[in-house]
Design a protein around this nucleic acid. Structure first.
Length: 489
RNA sequence: CGGGGUGUAGCGCAGUUGGUAGCGCACUUGACUGGGGGUCAAGAGGUCGCAUGUUCAAGUCAUGUCACUCCGACCA
């Protein structure tokens, strides 16, 4: 088979880029760092959105929408927040263009804004400014809001889906009467994310908290799910933040308790982005193309007819008509690829590249024998089965594939997770890739020094990690828990 | 922001000492083909990123400029 992708072994990074483009997920645009998400890629994102949106609603949240532009002054209200985002903000300074004496379109200097507007890198500030008006009493709490939006972070280096200047995401922003309730909310949403990652994306994730260095700007605690990619690098797949009363104080959001006392509100925020698309690609795909988990595949089953004459195609179409109806009735998305403009071999390769989990091929030979060829994308195995009753088998096969690719990713992570106690071993393991469980003395200095020497960062302090006395891998100082180190995206 | 690279057909690229603009894929038409990316034939498609300069003559040389891209720094 002719390869259109660079192999993972040859150049993993190139493989990823090739795959995103060749599988028609996205491409670079005329604007540096900003991508065009193509229909096939967007269809996957829509499936992700649909599942997540339902989960948010099931946990009591409502959707709303806040402005793209945020007055600059809002950012200065929360000190650490502005420090974290200032270096990557797009700023709107004018609101009008004009034609100059040479006929060129230029910015009209007369149309300078009194106060610059920031294109949101995240919406805490504009939302908390709004919440001040919405929250008066304990009766107004909790306030559980989510928004689906685009945000802009002017990153110096970008990669399709993994880090783009503009990206799509959802951001939840909640307000609570008590600290405990807010912490519970942050943990609940982390669980929503890990459930989604594992049961829909088929991607195992580690749940944990971030070290102070890696924490969200303005958060008291950042919870995260962290996944291991095939090249041994870690990818932060979602975060949920306990914000304490930082934003309530910055934006003066108080409520009156039952006892008629003024109290500041407690906050959380949480988000996942189109970066999940990058995670999905890297978690499962191979040198032949995408491997999509059935639960998120826009097309779950493709049927390729094999024929020479129109009469043969007609006979095949008639044969599969009932099957297509049956699959659709079971909420299985199916495409009958009867394009006459491409040959079967081309179609096989194309659907493989696009990661369709199950492919059926049916030709005159099958019509004569009452059979159908069934190929599964995850293992590339093919078998000839009886056409009769195939619908049930397909349903089961889709479930098996979902489980199999999760298991494969899980096994990979297990094989690439190492418990390390020796500094030289640590350096070697970091270089080779994978999750490294090691003791850390809890100081930012040590974390920074380890990063400087090895490029590894603390990805996660495991939530369910067992307590264990030990000595810091770097400083030798006492530690009571292992943390997860890795090189990260 | 530092260092490298690249701008030539839709995509990927070649283009020698300056002398009529080329290849592969894709595209169009036709025929044959059709169970893993078909074959043959004919065809269409270009102000060579932009500007200035040198020259009888510039894709090629010089200067400038813009864009993209890779590596690093940076990036919750």
């Amino acid at each position: 088979m002719a390869k259109v992708l660079t192999s993972r072994e040859e150049n993993y990074s190139q493989w990823y880029n090739d795959l995103v483009i060749k599988a028609d997920l996205a491409e670079n645009s005329a604007v540096r760092g900003s991508m065009v998400i193509k229909p096939y890629g967007y269809a996957i994102w829509e499936k992700m959105q649909a599942v997540l949106d339902q989960k948010f609603k099931d946990t009591g949240h409502q959707n709303a929408y806040f402005p793209l532009f945020i007055p600059k002054s809002f950012f200065s209200k929360e000190a650490s927040h502005v420090a974290g985002f200032a270096k990557e903000c797009a700023v709107v300074t004018h609101y009008r263009l004009k034609t100059d004496e040479n006929g060129n379109i230029v910015v009209d200097e007369d149309a300078k804004l009194e106060e610059e507007l920031i294109v949101r890198p995240t919406s805490e500030t504009i939302i908390w400014d709004t919440y001040r008006k919405w929250i008066q009493s304990y009766r107004d709490l909790p306030l559980l809001i989510n928004q689906w939006a685009n945000v802009v972070r002017w990153e110096m280096r970008t990669r399709l889906f993994l880090r783009t200047a503009e990206f799509l995401w959802q951001e939840g922003h909640t307000a609570h009467a008590t600290k405990d309730e807010a912490i519970t909310e942050a943990e609940t949403m982390l669980n929503v994310y890990s459930d989604f990652a594992e049961n829909y994306m088929a991607m195992p994730v580690l749940k944990g908290t971030k070290s102070p260095n890696e924490r969200f700007a303005g958060a008291i605690e950042t919870y995260c799910i962290e996944a291991l990619m095939q090249d041994g690098k870690a990818l932060q797949a979602g975060t949920s933040h306990f914000l304490g009363q930082n934003f309530a104080k910055a934006f003066d959001v108080k409520y009156v308790t039952k006892e008629n006392k003024q109290e500041y509100v407690w906050a959380t925020s949480w988000g996942v982005s189109t970066r999940l698309m990058g995670a999905l690609v890297m978690a499962h795909s191979d040198d032949n193309g995408l491997v999509l988990p059935p639960k998120l595949a826009p097309i779950q089953v493709v049927i390729v007819p094999i024929y020479r004459k129109p009469e043969e195609l007609a006979a095949i179409s008639e044969k599969v008509e009932g099957l297509i109806k049956d699959l659709k009735a079971n909420d299985i998305s199916v495409k009958f690829d009867d394009r006459d403009t491409h040959k079967p071999g081309f179609k096989f390769a194309e659907w493989e590249l696009k990661g369709v989990p199950v492919r059926l091929a049916i030709g005159p030979r099958d019509l004569a024998n009452g059979t159908v060829e069934v190929a599964r994308r995850d293992t590339l195995e093919k078998e000839i089965l009886q056409f009769e009753g195939i619908s049930t088998k397909i349903k089961n096969l889709l479930e098996q594939i979902q489980i199999n690719i999760y298991q494969k990713a899980y096994d990979f992570r297990e094989q690439n997770t190492f418990v390390v106690d020796d500094w030289n071993d640590f350096k070697a393991k970091v270089e080779a890739g994978g999750f490294i469980l090691a003791h850390w003395d809890g100081t930012e200095e040590t974390e920074q020094k380890i990063k400087d020497e090895t490029k590894a960062t603390i990805r996660s302090i495991p939530i369910d990690g067992k307590m264990e006395e030990g000595k810091c891998i770097f400083s030798g100082n006492p530690s009571n828990q292992r943390v997860v180190f890795a090189k990260a995206y």
